[in-house]
Amino acid sequence: MDTHYINEVLKGDTNAFGYFIRTYQNKAFGLAIAIVKREEEAKDIVQDSFITAYSSLENFRNDSKFSTWFYRIVVNKALQFIKKEKRKDEVVEEYSILENEKTALNNAIRQLEKQDLKKLIKRVFEKIPAKEALVLQLYYIDEHSILEIKQITVFTKTNIKVLLHRGRTNFYTILKNDKIKKPY
């Protein structure tokens, strides 16, 4: 379906690009906010990413999915924003999570209603480093594989696994220590 709209845009039908905005704006916003943590900046990044994608569409090579290519643009724009803001990732201590604690966490999460869960996840993501929030968002919420995450973020496979581990640990620690107010 994406290929059809890409061809239409390249033929000069600027309205056809609306398909991409409707299809990808929500996930793109989710990625941007996971990285920059601020709604207005995330909206600007998504808008800028769509402009970049539109103006660079003739460079899209079809060797990956359009969504992967586009999300990579979003991630790069968000990381550039952070770099400009000179924000640094927090130093995180490693925690080990017992298997029964993982099971308890998974059971607790399943019991939350979907809307409350989204609010809770957003609040936790605001408290963990941007790269960890990004990788958790891509892996668990957007259900991308590690290979797809590698293509979107240009992180190494090892780095992605480390960020997933740290992100899960930080996510669990924040929930366990009740550092955020639960939405219910």
Score class of each variant (00 low, 15 high):
Ala104Lys: 08
Lys86Ser: 12
Ile21Leu: 01
Ile35Thr: 01
Ile35Met: 06
Tyr54Gln: 14
Phe50Ala: 00
Leu57Ala: 10
Glu8Ile: 05
Phe155Pro: 07
Ser96Met: 02
Ile33Val: 14
Leu57Ile: 09
Lys119Glu: 04
Phe155Gly: 03
Lys27Gln: 08
Ala16Met: 13
Ser64Glu: 03
Leu105His: 10
Met1Ser: 09
Asp63Leu: 09
Glu148Gln: 08
Phe81Asp: 00
Ile146Ser: 10
Ile21Asp: 07
Leu136Thr: 00
Ala78Lys: 01
Ala42Val: 06
Arg166Asn: 08
Phe20Ile: 03
Glu113Lys: 08
Gly30Lys: 12
Met1Arg: 15
Ile97Ala: 01
His144Arg: 11
Asp116Gln: 10
Phe70Ala: 02
Arg110Met: 05
Ile141Arg: 12
Glu85Gly: 07
Gln80Ala: 13
Glu143Thr: 14
Asn107Ile: 13
Asn107Ser: 13
Glu113Trp: 08
Lys127Asp: 02
Asn107Arg: 15
Leu112Asn: 05
Lys131Gln: 04
Ile160Ser: 03
Phe125Ala: 09
Arg22Ala: 06
Lys86Gln: 13
Arg72Lys: 07
Ile174Gly: 12
Asp48Gln: 02
Asn26His: 13
Thr14His: 09
Ile33Trp: 00
Lys43Ala: 10
Leu112His: 05
Arg123Gln: 03
Lys102Met: 07
Thr68Val: 03
Thr14Val: 07
Lys11Phe: 14
Leu164Val: 11
Glu41Cys: 09
Thr103Asp: 12
Leu120Pro: 11
Ile141Gln: 10
Phe66Thr: 00
Val92Ile: 08
Val46Cys: 06
Tyr54Glu: 12
Gly12Asn: 07
Lys161Cys: 02
Ile6Ser: 04
Val46Lys: 06
Gln80Cys: 14
Ala108Phe: 13
Tyr5Asp: 00
Glu113Ile: 11
Gln47Met: 13
Lys43Cys: 02
Ile73Thr: 08
Tyr5Gln: 04
Ser55Phe: 15
Ser55Trp: 12
Ser145Phe: 06
Asp2Ala: 04
Tyr19Asp: 09
Glu8Asp: 10
His4Ala: 15
Ser96Cys: 08
Glu101Pro: 01
Asn107Leu: 12
Tyr71Met: 04
Gln115Pro: 05
Lys11Tyr: 14
Asp89Gln: 12
Phe155Asp: 05
Ala108Thr: 05
Asp142Phe: 14
Asn106Ile: 04
Asn159Asp: 13
Ile51Gly: 01
Thr156Leu: 14
Asn15Trp: 12
Ile180Lys: 03
Lys182Ala: 08
Gly18His: 15
Val75Ser: 01
Ser96Pro: 05
Ile146Thr: 09
Asn76Ser: 01
Lys181Ser: 11
Gln151Thr: 08
Lys77Ser: 08
Tyr95Thr: 13
Gln47Cys: 09
Ala42Asp: 03
Ile146Pro: 09
Thr156Arg: 15
Ala16Pro: 12
Glu143Asp: 12
Lys88Pro: 11
Glu94Asp: 12
Lys43Tyr: 07
Glu41Met: 06
Glu94Lys: 15
Leu175Lys: 07
Asp142Gln: 09
